[in-house]
Amino acid sequence: MCAASTARPAKGSVTPAVEAQGLTKAFGSGPTEVQALRGVDLSLRQGVFLAVMGPSGSGKSTLLHLVGGLTKPTSGKVLVGGQDLSALNDDALTLLRRRRIGFVFQFFNLLPILTALENVALPLIIDGVREAEATQRAAAAMELVGIAHRRGHRPGKLSGGEQQRVAVARALVTEPVLILADEPTGNLDSTTGDQVMALLRRLVDERGQTILMVTHDPRAAAMADSLLTLKDGFVAHEQRLDGGRSAGEILRELEGLS
C-alpha cells in the first residue's frame, strides 16, 4: 500500500520535496516519436517556490505531469517527499496524488454543481475524512486564502480570481508536500494575476509551502525563488532569483521614502 502519509514534514528537513533524476519522456514510437523530455534533473527543497518556463513544446507541461504522477516517465524517476513514484502501483499513486500533491490549473477546474466550500472539501471527502472534519478543514483553508466569505457560492457566481483562490484552497486542504500550478495566472487579468501570485508567495513565505509552477508569464515567474528554463526537452537555464537583496532590505528602503 501507499507509504505516503498526509503529515506535512517540517520545513528544513533534509528530504527534498521533489526530486527528478534523468527524466525522459517520449510520446509515440518509430518515425512519429516525439522526445518531450531528454534528461531533466531537479531537486526542490521544502519551502521553495520554483517556476518552470520555456516555449511551447519545451517539455514544461510534460515535466509537471511527470512530477505530479499523472504520466509515467520513459526513463528516470521522480520522488515526491522521498517517495519514488515508480515504486507505486496505480492505487498507491492515486492516493499519493490525492494526499501529498495539490494541483492548481489555468482554468480552475472546480466542479460547477458544488459550492466553493464543497469543492475545497472534496479531496478530503474522497479520501474518507468525516464530513464534519472535512468541512471544518475546508473552511480553514478558505480562510487562509481570503475567500471564506464565498463559501456558499457556486463557481459560476465567482470571478476568475475568486475561483482561483478556491482552487488554491482546494490544493492546500490536504496539507500537501507539494503544490503543482499549471499556468495559474493564464486565465486572469494582470491585477488579479498579481493577487493570485501574491497569495502563492505568501504560502511559501509564511507556511513553508513548496510550489512548482509552470508558466509562460515572466511576471508570474519573477515571484518565484528559482527559475528553470526548458528548451527542447533540456534544462537550458537555471537561476536563483534573489537579486542580491532580501525582501526586508527592499522594504526598509521603501519605508524610508514614504
Partner: peptide, 23 residues
C-alpha cells in the same frame, strides 16, 4: 543573452517583491 536574461529576471523579481511589499 543568457547573462542579460539572468539580470532582467533578477530585476523583475525585485520589482515583484517590491510590489508585494507595497500591495
Amino acid at each position: 543573452m543568457a547573462a542579460e536574461r539572468r539580470a532582467a529576471f533578477d530585476s523583475l523579481h525585485e520589482v515583484a517583491r517590491a510590489r508585494l511589499l507595497l500591495d
